[in-house]
């Protein structure tokens, strides 16, 4: 890595992509945060995000930095600046969304192909919605103790979640995701990159497959996703314990509940530390590569 080839991104270009994605998606989030929702029975019709912004950025630039930037923008503009910072709950959304957008960006090899862009856009939103649906169903499953006991309840929950998945896919996925992305990508491609001093992307960025999709990264991503779900489930675990195994509880006392929760907490902390260490290591590498 003695000289920067043109396909590689320098430290400041990564920073530019990060800031660009952050400001744009943040702004869009401010906007959607204030749009009203129309609730029809259990189904709500709302624009949950303007997905075309992160989608097109992720396709035009380095997917990882654009995806992380967009998620950070959502947290900062949509929540933190509005005084609506959710603390622990933000973590789940951050992981889901970053992962989904990153994958969407990796899928595209040819930005001129409408088919590819369209598929990537739909897959990206699909992954995000699917992950959140799984977490939601899991939450209800674990959170309400008598799901099986009440006739018809499991079916109705599945129906409600499925319906909201479909409406989300139509509104956020197609109307504010797919169609605007197909409109914007041909217009922005080759125009926005020079403004950041970046060569327009052709194919996958060179030497990227091994760099981005390293085994370590995939494992870390899956692990973090899993931890996001555990963190979510951890929250609901207690009711399930209280109702399913009351004798068990009496035998061991309330203290027993600490066991799974602290175990989950320990695993979680280890995961976070690994992630921070890994991020630190990779950024050091970047620095070395740049200064060398």
């Amino acid at each position: 890595m003695n000289q920067l080839s043109r396909e590689e991104y320098s430290q400041s270009q990564k920073m530019m992509i990060f800031i660009l994605a952050m400001s744009l998606f943040g702004l869009a989030n401010l906007f959607t945060e204030l749009l009203p929702e129309f609730v029809l029975g259990p189904v709500e019709i709302s624009v949950s995000y303007l997905a075309f912004i992160p989608l097109s950025l992720v396709m035009l630039f380095h997917p990882l930095y654009a995806a992380v930037g967009a998620s950070v923008g959502e947290i900062i503009f949509g929540d933190l600046l509005l005084g609506d910072f959710g603390g622990l709950g933000e973590l789940e959304g951050f992981i889901e969304f970053t992962l989904a957008m990153y994958i969407a960006g990796l899928l595209v090899t040819n930005l001129r192909s409408k088919k590819q862009v369209g598929i990537a856009a739909i897959v990206g939103i699909g992954i995000d919605q699917m992950l959140s649906t799984i977490v939601d169903v899991g939450k209800v499953w674990v959170g309400i103790e008598e799901v099986e006991a009440v006739p018809g309840l499991p079916e109705s929950i599945l129906a409600i979640e499925g319906l909201s998945f479909v409406t989300e896919m139509i509104i956020s996925g197609v109307i504010f995701g797919l169609i605007p992305t197909l409109y914007l990508i041909p217009r922005l491609y080759g125009k926005i990159e020079p403004l950041l001093g970046i060569k327009p992307r052709e194919g996958r960025v060179k030497a990227s497959m091994t760099e981005w999709m390293s085994v370590r990264f995939v494992i870390l991503a899956i692990f973090l996703t899993f931890m996001g779900m555990v963190a979510e489930f951890m929250a609901e675990m207690d009711i399930n314990f209280a109702v399913w195994e009351p004798e068990f509880l009496e035998q061991f006392g309330d203290g027993f509940i600490w066991l799974p929760i602290s175990a989950a907490a320990i695993v979680f902390i280890v995961a976070v530390f690994t992630a921070i260490k890994w991020l630190g290591a990779s950024s050091n590498q970047d620095k070395k590569g740049k200064s060398a």
Binding site: M16, P180, I192, L195, L196
Partner: peptide, 26 residues
């Protein structure tokens, strides 16, 4: 809705320019 979406096209280009200035200054 169309305006909201379309307005992001110039917005993206302007923000890209601004971002570059910011990062260079940083």
């Amino acid at each position: 809705s169309k305006i909201v979406v379309k307005a992001f096209y110039p917005m993206m280009l302007n923000t890209a320019k601004k971002t570059r200035t910011t990062v260079e200054a940083l």
